[in-house]
Simulated assay, not measured.
Amino acid sequence: MRRITTRIGMLAAAALLAVAAAGPAQGKQASDAAHRAQAESAAYFVMTDITREEFVIKLTDPRKIQHARDLLSGASSSEPHVIGRIDKRPAPYNWRWSFHLRPDTIDFFDFAIEVCDATTPYVEEHLDEAGGPFLPGLIWCPWTSKLVREVPQP
């Protein structure tokens, strides 16, 4: 009787391990699929500021993508400026700069407070200071920003 109980216990443990090992793999597959779907639904736009330097942003929210397209087509003129939280790392779609805006934080505005205003080259030159008194919270809102065109996904 003891042998049977031991074998049943071993089989149950093996089955539990198999189920536990399959769970993360299935979760990873679902996560990969969600990531691919998000990448496919992303749109990329070039913005400039008073310096006329070009900076690429990635939008993933369908409502914001539509707003950006409306700005470019002239269907809308409200909230023409870009605001978002800086990530102090380069992005493949924005290779020229050593920072980018986190897509999940990007929005549009009409007016903003002065503390988040800076030109793109100024942010690049003072990136190590961003997040302190310069651009607190890493929020960047260039007052003269405007979208100039949509670009294909890199």
Rank of each mutant, 00 (worst) to 15 (best):
G23C: 13
T48N: 01
L17M: 04
S31A: 03
S41I: 10
P92W: 11
D87H: 08
C141M: 10
P24V: 06
P62W: 04
P62G: 04
T51F: 15
P103H: 10
E53P: 05
F55N: 00
D110Y: 02
I106W: 06
L72A: 11
D70Q: 11
R7L: 12
M47W: 06
T6F: 08
V56M: 00
A33R: 12
T120N: 13
A75Y: 10
P92E: 12
R52A: 10
G131I: 01
R69L: 15
R3K: 05
R2W: 14
H81Y: 04
Y122K: 12
S78Y: 06
S98M: 04
R7N: 13
A12Y: 09
I139W: 04
L127A: 00
R36F: 00
L16I: 09
Y122N: 11
S41H: 15
N94W: 01
E125L: 08
M1R: 11
C116T: 10
C141K: 10
A18R: 07
A25G: 00
G9T: 09
R149W: 02
A130M: 08
E79T: 01
H67Q: 09
D32Q: 03
E125F: 09
K64A: 12
D128S: 11
W140Y: 10
P62F: 05
Q29N: 02
R2Q: 12
D32P: 00
V115A: 14
H81F: 00
T105L: 07
T51D: 15
Q38Y: 12
D104R: 15
D32E: 02
S77V: 12
I113A: 09
L59G: 06
A112R: 06
R102M: 07
P136K: 00
D117Y: 08
W97I: 10
Y122H: 11
M47P: 15
T119H: 08
W97F: 01
V151Y: 12
V56Q: 01
A12H: 07
A118W: 05
E124P: 02
E125W: 09
A37D: 05
A68N: 09
E114A: 13
S78T: 12
T5A: 14
G27T: 03
G132Q: 09
E53T: 08
R3T: 03
Q66N: 13
L59V: 10
S78G: 08
G23P: 06
A33C: 04
H35G: 07
M1S: 12
W95I: 00
Q66D: 15
M10F: 06
H67P: 05
A42E: 14
D110G: 07
E114G: 14
D104L: 13
G27M: 03
Q66R: 15
L72W: 14
H81G: 04
A37F: 10
Q66V: 14
F109K: 03
D117H: 13
S76M: 13
P142G: 02
V148Y: 00
L147M: 12
G27S: 05
S73T: 11
H126V: 00
P62D: 02
R3N: 05
L16N: 07
D61M: 07
P133L: 15
F134L: 07
D61G: 04
D128W: 03
L138F: 06
E125C: 04
A15H: 07
R52M: 08
R3Q: 06
A25L: 04
K146F: 03
Y44L: 07
L135Q: 02
A91W: 01
A34T: 04
G131A: 00
